[in-house]
Design a protein around this nucleic acid. Structure first.
Lengths: 239, 239
DNA sequence: CGGCAATTTGACCACATTCAAATTGCGTGG
DNA sequence: CCACGCAATTTGAATGTGGTCAAATTGCCG
């Protein structure tokens, strides 16, 4: 076996509830263990897959943090998402049997490799898995709808506030703090995701600090006033 | 039977290749006919489904033109897509069993109603259908990635050029002209989709007309110089 | 013909970008 | 351990793109 891939099991994975359906029988779980063939380690800065590469598998993130980006022909690129433990990447590859974006590790990471033909095979027999796959794809569609709303109609402060709230909410669901987080990405990457320049991201952080909404030390962010952040995202109209 | 719903068959639908998998056996086709329970007519301006409504079915558009929009709590809304004959809407509803956006007919329309539990059932048995469902969802994810690139990194002219090229390409695939199209949506709806104000859309159209790239008479658009449009979307760097 | 919605156009303004420079933090090697 | 070099970040000043507000025009439908 490749030193880069390790045999594993979902049945005792502590991320199970994040990336697998609930309420499976022991025998179904065992069969899914079989689909999740192995793990793969990705060093910080390395790609899990790249635009144009053949699509074979979905990947469940075990540890680490990823970004996905698409590029236009003339070199511009756009971060389309940041993914953390328990989330699935690779869905973009299904439609054309080739990936249409890059997935890059923002820190040393480990993923479970799930060959897609095996997923399809098993999801014909395990209804809960079929349903789960559909939900994962639908969730991604809904997430992207939200990003379109953000990019299409929000101003810089609103975008950054929404970004921070989303990030901290997902981290909290994984047992981390509700009010403190470490950004795994640069200001430029945040800017690309939010449709802003890195300077604008920096300035907006500074503005939030001035206003006492957050504390920022480099990549370390502490949210001092979550209500105010929420209010920036969703300005309340006075009655 | 409701006067609003009509019994139908995919097996003789001329849009089959657009919304159904290819290469099905007659018997498989017949079974799919059975999933596509009935049709529904939607008047211009009426909603096919609305944010918050229970999700039951996907809809294949037979005739007419739709927009989908999401709204933020404070009333802003964002058009997330325009859909035409042969395209599928409703995928957003799968993840939470409720729709998270509105689908509104931009002209009198007719859709095939495909109850999702029936789709799941049948796609366990007909591999081509299973694969097809996965591809449709993946295609939507990839489309939205492209919109994110547009909203995140393009300027007004680039956005509108990309929009027109995309629209005319999809229409062409349905047998319409490569160079002429009728916009089914208002300037405001285009603007919402592209993250621009309606005045900016109008101004940008005017600019394209000045530059001899298109002719515009209200909603009727004729593309005079597609290469120039492509060049606006993807500026070539001089060597 | 009249009324209304959609579109166009102009003038002014705001927000984010660009360009530039200074500062900070971090890893590496002396 | 400190010095150095590089990348990331912050901040400032000037600019530009698209937004806002307002008014005029067009087209459509009753």
């Amino acid at each position: 076996m490749n030193s880069n891939s390790i045999k594993v099991a979902c049945s005792n994975c502590n991320l199970r509830e994040l990336c697998m359906p609930l309420g499976l029988s022991p025998i179904e779980l065992e069969r899914i263990d079989d689909v999740v063939a192995n793990r793969r380690k990705i060093k910080r800065g390395a790609t899990l897959f790249r635009n144009g590469e053949k699509f074979t598998s979905l990947y469940a993130i075990r540890t680490g943090f990823f970004k996905t980006c698409v590029a236009s022909e003339d070199g511009r690129d756009q971060v389309t998402g940041f993914q953390m433990a328990g989330e699935i990447v690779g869905l973009d590859g299904i439609v054309h049997d080739h990936h249409t974006c890059d997935a890059i590790a923002l820190e040393d990471a480990e993923v479970c490799v799930m060959p897609f033909d095996r997923i399809e095979e098993l999801s014909r027999e395990v209804n809960a898995l079929q349903r789960h796959v559909h939900k994962i794809m639908s969730r991604e569609i809904v997430r992207e709808n939200g990003v379109m709303l953000l990019l299409g109609s929000m101003r810089a402060e609103e975008r950054l506030a929404a970004f921070l709230l989303n990030l901290v909410q997902r981290l909290h669901a994984r047992g981390f703090s509700q009010s403190e987080l470490i950004l795994r990405m640069t200001r430029e990457e945040i800017g690309s995701y939010l449709g802003l320049k890195l300077e604008t991201v920096s300035r907006t952080f500074s503005k939030f600090v001035e206003d006492g909404i957050v504390e920022v030390k480099q990549r370390h962010v502490r949210i001092l006033n979550a209500d105010k952040l929420k209010d920036i995202v969703n300005p309340k109209v006075c009655n």
